[in-house]
Design a protein around this nucleic acid. Structure first.
Length: 259
DNA sequence: ATGGCAATCTCTGATTGA
């Protein structure tokens, strides 16, 4: 079994000890992180290397930043969408354990009238083309990360309250559907899940305690990998800890033998 | 309708997130 996870850590500097503790105690094999918010020169690579883990990262100051840590070697790294000039560090692509892993921190979009929303839609279009190209090369492919899209109303605690906002707009949901139409599967929906399961809760207004959340962190799997998916889980426990990230980690278990 | 909380770099308040 291979346990593959994704977590928006909202500053790896603040969350380093929590990440290490969770990675170890949950016996995660591969963890894709978003919002590390660290320049590469400040990335705490020794904290992972001294434990024997493999690590790659693509960071920037204050905002964004993505990384992957793994018990297995990481190779064939990409840090940009080809033919798309973007200074923001939002994608990290690696090959690990025979899987092409695409780690995304999709832009938030701010609000529907914002330039950032247009940037988000354009970014999604560019990354979709890239993923399509990667899928033609790598049958075992996973697209994971903070998508900043709640795909359906059941992924939103109060759809009426959220109507007209980013994360739930028709254009964003259409972009998400286009990823599925490439032949990717939303692994969470492979299984019967409880209702009102989310991966993000606002820090404000006791949103976590009231379970006022959204499911915006996803693990999408190609058909051959999805056939090996035995579990897809959102782990709320780290969100309960002191000084938590506002996102919960998500993980899948894949019935793969890795040497 | 608004603000609420957290992280960052410091323009010690403004900006961003979702």
């Amino acid at each position: 079994m291979l346990k593959l996870a994704s977590w928006n850590v909202n500053s790896l500097k603040i969350r380093l000890d929590q990440v290490l503790e969770w990675f170890d105690s949950e016996r995660v094999d591969v963890l894709a992180m978003q919002e590390t918010k660290l320049l590469d020169e400040n990335f705490p690579m020794n904290a992972f290397i001294e434990k024997g883990y493999h690590v790659v990262f693509s960071g920037q100051k204050t905002y964004n930043g993505v990384a992957v840590i793994s018990r297995y070697p990481l190779s064939d790294v990409l840090t940009d969408i080809p033919d798309f000039n973007d200074p923001q560090r939002r994608i990290l692509v690696v090959t690990v354990a025979g899987i092409r892993l695409i780690n995304l921190y999709v832009p938030n979009g701010s609000e529907l009238t914002s330039d950032k929303y247009q940037y988000k839609l354009n970014w999604l279009q560019k990354v979709t083309t890239f993923i399509q190209q990667q899928m033609s090369i790598f049958p075992n492919l996973a697209v994971v990360g903070d998508f900043n899209i709640a795909p359906e109303d059941r992924d939103v605690h109060d759809p009426a309250e959220w109507a007209g906002s980013v994360l739930v707009s028709p254009a964003e949901r259409e972009a998400f559907m286009q990823l599925l139409q490439l032949g990717l599967y939303d692994s969470f929906r492979n299984f019967i899940q409880d209702e009102q399961i989310f991966s993000w809760w606002d820090y404000r207004a006791a949103a976590f305690r009231r379970n006022r959340g959204l499911r915006i962190d996803h693990i999408l799997l190609s058909k051959s990998l999805n056939a090996l998916c035995r579990q897809s889980v959102i782990d709320k426990e780290p969100r309960k800890s002191e000084r938590p990230s506002d996102h919960a980690p998500v993980w899948v278990e894949l019935d793969l033998n890795v040497s």
